[in-house]
Protein backbone atom coordinates (compact mmCIF):
# COMPACT_ATOMS: atom_id res chain seq x y z
CA UNK A 1 0.00 0.00 0.00
CA UNK A 2 2.97 2.33 -0.27
CA UNK A 3 2.94 3.05 -3.99
CA UNK A 4 0.59 3.46 -6.91
CA UNK A 5 -2.61 5.21 -7.73
CA UNK A 6 -4.85 3.77 -4.95
CA UNK A 7 -2.97 5.85 -2.40
CA UNK A 8 -3.42 9.09 -4.35
CA UNK A 9 -7.03 8.28 -5.15
CA UNK A 10 -7.81 7.80 -1.46
CA UNK A 11 -5.98 10.97 -0.47
CA UNK A 12 -7.80 12.97 -3.15
CA UNK A 13 -11.15 11.57 -2.04
CA UNK A 14 -10.46 12.40 1.59
CA UNK A 15 -9.32 15.92 0.74
CA UNK A 16 -12.32 16.52 -1.54
CA UNK A 17 -14.66 15.36 1.19
CA UNK A 18 -12.99 17.55 3.82
CA UNK A 19 -12.99 20.51 1.45
CA UNK A 20 -16.65 20.19 0.54
CA UNK A 21 -17.92 19.48 4.04
CA UNK A 22 -15.65 21.46 6.33
CA UNK A 23 -13.38 23.98 4.62
CA UNK A 24 -16.03 25.36 2.25
CA UNK A 25 -18.74 25.92 4.90
CA UNK A 26 -16.15 27.45 7.24
CA UNK A 27 -15.05 29.84 4.51
CA UNK A 28 -18.70 30.63 3.76
CA UNK A 29 -19.23 31.74 7.37
CA UNK A 30 -16.50 34.35 7.08
CA UNK A 31 -17.42 35.40 3.54
CA UNK A 32 -21.03 35.97 4.53
CA UNK A 33 -20.02 37.72 7.75
CA UNK A 34 -17.97 40.26 5.80
CA UNK A 35 -20.38 40.44 2.84
CA UNK A 36 -21.31 44.04 3.68
CA UNK A 37 -17.92 45.12 4.91
CA UNK A 38 -16.11 45.50 8.21
CA UNK A 39 -18.51 48.08 9.69
CA UNK A 40 -21.56 45.87 9.25
CA UNK A 41 -19.63 42.98 10.78
CA UNK A 42 -18.66 44.97 13.87
CA UNK A 43 -22.20 46.34 14.17
CA UNK A 44 -23.57 42.78 14.21
CA UNK A 45 -21.35 41.93 17.13
CA UNK A 46 -21.54 45.03 19.32
CA UNK A 47 -25.29 45.25 19.10
CA UNK A 48 -26.60 44.90 22.74
CA UNK A 49 -28.48 41.63 22.24
CA UNK A 50 -25.43 40.05 20.59
CA UNK A 51 -23.20 41.22 23.44
CA UNK A 52 -25.69 39.85 25.95
CA UNK A 53 -25.58 36.51 24.15
CA UNK A 54 -21.76 36.51 24.26
CA UNK A 55 -21.85 37.36 27.98
CA UNK A 56 -24.36 34.62 28.74
CA UNK A 57 -22.35 32.05 26.77
CA UNK A 58 -19.19 32.95 28.66
CA UNK A 59 -21.07 32.83 31.98
CA UNK A 60 -22.54 29.40 31.23
CA UNK A 61 -19.16 28.02 30.19
CA UNK A 62 -17.53 29.58 33.26
CA UNK A 63 -19.93 27.63 35.48
CA UNK A 64 -20.27 24.38 33.52
CA UNK A 65 -16.60 23.81 32.74
CA UNK A 66 -15.23 24.07 36.31
CA UNK A 67 -18.09 21.90 37.53
CA UNK A 68 -17.25 19.22 35.01
CA UNK A 69 -13.53 19.45 35.76
CA UNK A 70 -14.25 18.64 39.39
CA UNK A 71 -16.77 15.97 38.50
CA UNK A 72 -14.59 14.48 35.77
CA UNK A 73 -11.53 14.31 38.02
CA UNK A 74 -13.49 12.79 40.89
CA UNK A 75 -15.17 10.20 38.66
CA UNK A 76 -12.00 9.13 36.85
CA UNK A 77 -10.04 9.01 40.09
CA UNK A 78 -12.68 6.82 41.70
CA UNK A 79 -13.09 4.57 38.67
CA UNK A 80 -9.42 3.98 37.95
CA UNK A 81 -7.83 3.96 41.39
CA UNK A 82 -10.43 2.13 43.48
CA UNK A 83 -12.60 -0.97 43.27
CA UNK A 84 -16.21 -0.72 44.29
CA UNK A 85 -19.63 -2.13 43.48
CA UNK A 86 -21.53 -0.41 40.69
CA UNK A 87 -18.43 0.80 38.88
CA UNK A 88 -19.76 -0.42 35.51
CA UNK A 89 -23.02 1.44 36.14
CA UNK A 90 -21.13 4.65 36.86
CA UNK A 91 -19.13 4.34 33.63
CA UNK A 92 -22.35 3.83 31.67
CA UNK A 93 -23.93 6.84 33.37
CA UNK A 94 -20.99 9.02 32.37
CA UNK A 95 -21.53 8.04 28.75
CA UNK A 96 -25.26 8.70 28.87
CA UNK A 97 -25.13 12.34 27.65
CA UNK A 98 -23.25 11.14 24.55
CA UNK A 99 -25.92 8.63 23.65
CA UNK A 100 -28.97 10.76 24.39
CA UNK A 101 -30.11 13.38 21.88
CA UNK A 102 -29.41 16.88 23.27
CA UNK A 103 -33.06 17.82 22.67
CA UNK A 104 -34.13 15.00 24.98
CA UNK A 105 -31.59 16.18 27.55
CA UNK A 106 -33.22 19.61 27.47
CA UNK A 107 -36.71 18.15 27.70
CA UNK A 108 -35.74 16.19 30.81
CA UNK A 109 -35.21 19.49 32.62
CA UNK A 110 -38.44 20.95 31.32
CA UNK A 111 -40.27 17.86 32.59
CA UNK A 112 -38.57 18.16 35.97
CA UNK A 113 -38.51 21.89 36.59
CA UNK A 114 -40.99 23.37 34.08
CA UNK A 115 -44.29 24.82 35.31
CA UNK A 116 -46.12 21.58 34.46
CA UNK A 117 -43.18 19.50 35.66
CA UNK A 118 -42.61 17.39 38.77
CA UNK A 119 -41.11 20.17 40.83
CA UNK A 120 -42.73 23.01 38.90
CA UNK A 121 -45.27 24.12 41.48
CA UNK A 122 -42.99 23.97 44.49
CA UNK A 123 -40.35 25.92 42.59
CA UNK A 124 -42.87 28.57 41.55
CA UNK A 125 -44.08 28.86 45.16
CA UNK A 126 -40.49 29.33 46.28
CA UNK A 127 -40.00 31.98 43.60
CA UNK A 128 -37.26 30.07 41.83
CA UNK A 129 -37.25 29.99 38.05
CA UNK A 130 -35.12 27.41 36.33
CA UNK A 131 -36.70 26.79 32.95
CA UNK A 132 -36.59 29.75 30.52
CA UNK A 133 -33.88 31.24 32.74
CA UNK A 134 -30.13 31.07 33.24
CA UNK A 135 -30.14 28.17 35.77
CA UNK A 136 -31.85 25.89 33.25
CA UNK A 137 -29.32 26.78 30.57
CA UNK A 138 -26.47 26.04 32.96
CA UNK A 139 -28.03 22.71 34.02
CA UNK A 140 -28.57 21.61 30.43
CA UNK A 141 -25.03 22.59 29.47
CA UNK A 142 -23.53 20.80 32.46
CA UNK A 143 -25.45 17.66 31.52
CA UNK A 144 -24.42 17.70 27.88
CA UNK A 145 -20.74 18.41 28.59
CA UNK A 146 -20.59 15.96 31.48
CA UNK A 147 -18.52 13.21 29.79
CA UNK A 148 -15.73 15.18 28.13
CA UNK A 149 -13.22 15.46 30.97
CA UNK A 150 -13.95 12.03 32.46
CA UNK A 151 -13.83 10.31 29.06
CA UNK A 152 -10.45 11.86 28.39
CA UNK A 153 -8.97 10.94 31.77
CA UNK A 154 -10.28 7.42 32.39
CA UNK A 155 -8.26 5.65 29.65
CA UNK A 156 -5.17 7.68 30.50
CA UNK A 157 -5.38 6.94 34.21
CA UNK A 158 -6.21 3.31 33.54
CA UNK A 159 -3.09 2.97 31.43
CA UNK A 160 -0.97 4.62 34.11
CA UNK A 161 -2.21 2.15 36.73
CA UNK A 162 -2.17 2.52 40.50
CA UNK A 163 1.45 1.70 41.22
CA UNK A 164 2.68 5.27 41.50
CA UNK A 165 -0.13 6.23 43.87
CA UNK A 166 0.53 3.15 45.98
CA UNK A 167 4.24 3.92 46.03
CA UNK A 168 3.47 7.46 47.20
CA UNK A 169 1.18 6.15 49.93
CA UNK A 170 3.77 3.64 51.10
CA UNK A 171 6.24 6.54 51.38
CA UNK A 172 3.90 8.33 53.75
CA UNK A 173 1.92 10.67 51.48
CA UNK A 174 -1.70 11.46 52.33
CA UNK A 175 -4.54 11.43 49.80
CA UNK A 176 -4.33 15.10 48.83
CA UNK A 177 -0.54 15.01 48.54
CA UNK A 178 -0.76 11.92 46.32
CA UNK A 179 -3.24 13.71 44.08
CA UNK A 180 -1.33 16.98 43.90
CA UNK A 181 2.19 15.61 43.53
CA UNK A 182 1.70 12.31 41.68
CA UNK A 183 -1.67 11.97 39.95
CA UNK A 184 -2.23 15.52 38.72
CA UNK A 185 1.22 16.01 37.13
CA UNK A 186 0.78 12.69 35.30
CA UNK A 187 -2.57 13.66 33.81
CA UNK A 188 -2.23 17.41 33.34
CA UNK A 189 -2.01 17.38 29.54
CA UNK A 190 -4.89 14.95 29.22
CA UNK A 191 -6.89 17.08 31.62
CA UNK A 192 -6.22 20.26 29.66
CA UNK A 193 -7.26 18.50 26.49
CA UNK A 194 -10.52 17.36 28.08
CA UNK A 195 -11.22 20.85 29.43
CA UNK A 196 -10.73 22.29 25.97
CA UNK A 197 -13.21 19.92 24.37
CA UNK A 198 -15.62 20.46 27.25
CA UNK A 199 -15.40 24.23 26.83
CA UNK A 200 -15.91 24.10 23.06
CA UNK A 201 -19.04 22.04 23.52
CA UNK A 202 -20.31 24.19 26.41
CA UNK A 203 -20.13 27.32 24.26
CA UNK A 204 -21.45 25.67 21.13
CA UNK A 205 -24.32 23.60 22.54
CA UNK A 206 -27.58 24.27 20.73
CA UNK A 207 -30.18 21.53 21.15
CA UNK A 208 -30.47 21.11 24.90
CA UNK A 209 -30.08 24.82 25.57
CA UNK A 210 -32.66 25.68 22.91
CA UNK A 211 -35.31 23.62 24.70
CA UNK A 212 -34.80 25.18 28.14
CA UNK A 213 -33.90 28.72 27.14
CA UNK A 214 -37.16 30.22 25.91
CA UNK A 215 -35.18 32.40 23.46
CA UNK A 216 -35.67 35.67 25.33
CA UNK A 217 -33.52 38.20 23.55
CA UNK A 218 -30.87 39.82 25.68
CA UNK A 219 -31.75 37.54 28.59
CA UNK A 220 -31.69 33.83 27.81
CA UNK A 221 -30.07 33.71 24.39
CA UNK A 222 -26.68 32.10 24.10
CA UNK A 223 -24.58 32.68 20.99
CA UNK A 224 -25.81 29.64 19.03
CA UNK A 225 -29.42 30.57 19.79
CA UNK A 226 -28.81 34.19 18.84
CA UNK A 227 -27.36 33.07 15.51
CA UNK A 228 -30.49 31.08 14.78
CA UNK A 229 -32.81 33.98 15.60
CA UNK A 230 -30.89 36.44 13.45
CA UNK A 231 -30.82 33.98 10.59
CA UNK A 232 -34.55 33.39 10.79
CA UNK A 233 -35.00 37.15 10.59
CA UNK A 234 -32.98 37.21 7.35
CA UNK A 235 -30.32 39.29 9.11
CA UNK A 236 -27.58 37.28 7.44
CA UNK A 237 -24.63 39.58 8.08
CA UNK A 238 -25.26 39.79 11.83
CA UNK A 239 -26.01 36.04 12.03
CA UNK A 240 -22.79 35.12 10.32
CA UNK A 241 -20.84 37.71 12.28
CA UNK A 242 -21.82 36.04 15.57
CA UNK A 243 -21.33 32.63 13.96
CA UNK A 244 -17.82 33.68 12.97
CA UNK A 245 -17.00 34.14 16.65
CA UNK A 246 -18.07 30.55 17.33
CA UNK A 247 -16.14 29.36 14.29
CA UNK A 248 -13.11 31.28 15.55
CA UNK A 249 -13.46 29.55 18.93
CA UNK A 250 -13.53 26.20 17.13
CA UNK A 251 -10.39 27.06 15.19
CA UNK A 252 -8.54 28.20 18.30
CA UNK A 253 -9.64 25.03 20.11
CA UNK A 254 -8.38 22.95 17.22
CA UNK A 255 -5.07 24.75 17.20
CA UNK A 256 -4.49 24.41 20.94
CA UNK A 257 -5.64 20.80 20.77
CA UNK A 258 -3.06 20.04 18.07
CA UNK A 259 -0.36 21.74 20.09
CA UNK A 260 -1.39 19.70 23.13
CA UNK A 261 -1.45 16.46 21.19
CA UNK A 262 2.03 17.18 20.03
CA UNK A 263 3.16 17.95 23.55
CA UNK A 264 1.07 15.17 25.07
CA UNK A 265 2.48 12.49 22.74
CA UNK A 266 5.86 13.67 23.86
CA UNK A 267 5.14 13.07 27.53
CA UNK A 268 3.62 9.69 26.79
CA UNK A 269 6.67 8.65 24.80
CA UNK A 270 8.79 9.82 27.73
CA UNK A 271 6.87 7.80 30.27
CA UNK A 272 8.59 4.57 29.37
CA UNK A 273 5.57 2.73 27.96
Amino acid sequence: MTTGWPKYLLITLALAFLGANIALPLAAVFVEAFAKGWDAYVEGIIEPDALAAVRLTLLVAAIAVPFNIVFGLAASWAITKFDFRGKAVLITMIDLPFSVSPVVSGLIYVLLFGLQGWFGESLRDAGVQIIFAVPGIVLATVFVTFPFVARELIPLMQEQGRDEEEAARSLGAGGWTVFRRVTLPNIKWGLLYGVLLCNARAMGEFGAVSVVSGHIRGLTNTMPLHVEILYNEYNFVAAFAVASLLAGLALVTLLVKSLLEWRFADTIAGSGH
Partner: peptide, 12 residues
Amino acid sequence: GFVFQHYALFRH
Protein backbone atom coordinates in the same frame (compact mmCIF):
# COMPACT_ATOMS: atom_id res chain seq x y z
CA GLY B 1 9.42 0.59 52.21
CA PHE B 2 7.72 -1.05 49.25
CA VAL B 3 9.41 -2.01 45.98
CA PHE B 4 7.16 -2.81 43.03
CA GLN B 5 7.77 -5.28 40.22
CA HIS B 6 7.41 -2.54 37.61
CA TYR B 7 9.35 0.01 39.70
CA ALA B 8 6.46 2.52 39.99
CA LEU B 9 8.85 5.45 39.81
CA PHE B 10 7.18 8.86 39.53
CA ARG B 11 7.62 9.42 35.83
CA HIS B 12 7.47 13.20 35.91
